[in-house]
Amino acid sequence: MCKHILNAQVSIRAPCCKQWYDCAECHGESQTHPLAKTAEMAFICKKCKKAFRKNMSEYEESDEYCPHCDNHYVIEAKTPQAIVGVEGEDARVDNRMLKDDRVKQSTNRSLFTINSDDLTDKVG
């Protein structure tokens, strides 16, 4: 599974080290040498698991499909994007993640304190 291209449809065979990779960046991370360029590339379709070769110097629009299962492997790559957000349920259903910023009223009410604003404690 490639971490650079989320929807990779084929694996490529590196002509320099003869190993299979999902993308050129995966080759660069695991090897110390650069990826060699060649006119003929070998692929493995991830849908039907069959290998095939394509001549890149004579590449046409019809070559964008696997010759065995017609899987369209030349598509726009989906790369992972960083997203900042809060993971959790709907706050209307589960509100444990919400903070209550309301100020609590003081509970030091007494019959002996005289407060001109609050005369409800006064007897008589």
Rank of each mutant, 00 (worst) to 15 (best):
H4L: 00
R109F: 09
E40C: 11
N95M: 01
R96V: 06
W20G: 06
S110D: 14
M41H: 12
C48M: 12
T79W: 01
L6P: 01
D101H: 13
N7G: 00
C45R: 01
C48F: 09
R96L: 07
M1V: 02
S106D: 15
R102I: 11
D118S: 08
G85K: 07
I83R: 05
R96T: 11
I5G: 01
S30Q: 15
P15N: 05
I5P: 00
Y59H: 08
S11W: 00
S57M: 10
D118K: 09
V123L: 10
R13K: 15
C45I: 08
V93L: 10
A91Q: 02
G28M: 06
C66F: 04
A24I: 09
Q105G: 07
S110R: 03
K3E: 06
Y65D: 05
G124F: 13
I12V: 15
R53F: 09
P15W: 02
C16M: 05
N71Y: 03
H72A: 05
E25L: 09
I75G: 03
A36I: 08
D101S: 09
E89F: 08
C66L: 02
F52H: 03
V103K: 13
I83T: 10
E29V: 05
N108V: 06
E58D: 07
R109N: 12
I114H: 11
W20T: 12
P15A: 04
A51T: 13
H27Y: 14
K99S: 11
C69P: 07
D63F: 07
A8D: 04
R96M: 04
A77V: 06
H33L: 14
S110H: 09
A14L: 02
R53N: 09
H68F: 15
R109G: 11
D118E: 10
A8R: 03
C26Y: 00
C16Y: 02
E76Y: 04
T120R: 15
V84T: 12
E89C: 15
N108T: 12
A36Q: 15
E87P: 03
H72V: 00
D94L: 06
